[in-house]
Design a protein around this nucleic acid. Sequence first.
DNA 1: CTTTGCACCTGTTGGC
DNA 2: TGCCAACAGGTGCAAA
Length: 272
Amino acid sequence: MPELPEVETTRRGVEPHLTGATVTDVVVREGRLRWPVPPALAATLSGLPVLAVRRRAKYLLLEFASGTLLVHLGMSGSLRLVAADTPPQKHDHIDLILDGRTALRYRDPRRFGAMLWHVGPVEFHPLLAELGPEPLGDAFDADTLYRASRGRTTSIKQLLMDNHVVVGVGNIYANESLFEAGIRPGRAARRLTHADCERLAVAIKSILARAIEAGGSTLRDFVGASGQPGYFQQTYAVYGRAEEPCHTCGSLIRQIRQGQRSSYYCPHCQPW
DNA sequence: CTTTGCACCTGTTGGC
DNA sequence: TGCCAACAGGTGCAAA
């Protein structure tokens, strides 16, 4: 699930319940995530109030006075708020107990996610230090995309998914943005004109912003035990629509493989 | 430095 | 119905 809009939706959902609350315990039922969850996490966090919940790329950052808890949802992770005595279900690996009553519950069937503790300025954490600009920030625009694409033989779609160039653009939104910009995913990055980069940067910002808005408007169930957290069924222009007609021109959407991942495009609306 | 492919893990889907 | 292969939205890392 988690692409950037879901991560940001999650942040907005949990932030009001976390900020100002004090961690009273941490229960780790399964600590084998992408990296081992620090065994001393309960001792580290107990008694500390959450100062803020921020996001960098797809990392959620829970800030405390003495350090930062980095949380990544990987491919299948989710966070929700439940009463602390709610029985955990399968794959509910970690609870942050807040004020002894509420649990911030981390679920991740595939365990590709992460929960790491960092002391010191979090922007210097090795996982964050080399990241490119936020897609919705002013530091990412047509110029940065144009410069980043010069001399690059890789495809524009793979360049978009390179975290050094821009963060938070995963497989779905790389495909959707390229459709909106009218550019084929397989085109060499170095062949993009400045005008292409302009349309693409605008498309990325617009699509991500719209998806976050949609997530916010259907935001629910971060508090409580019912159903999945407040994600949303998004309708896509090309992603997952192989052999289906393009909503714009009726041509059949094509699917190709790029770097072991599926890409989708409309042969008419994305001429090259 | 860039590019490519693998690895981590479980669950779902589709074909036979 | 059962079995098996292929695939799934992330991303760090090693190797070429």
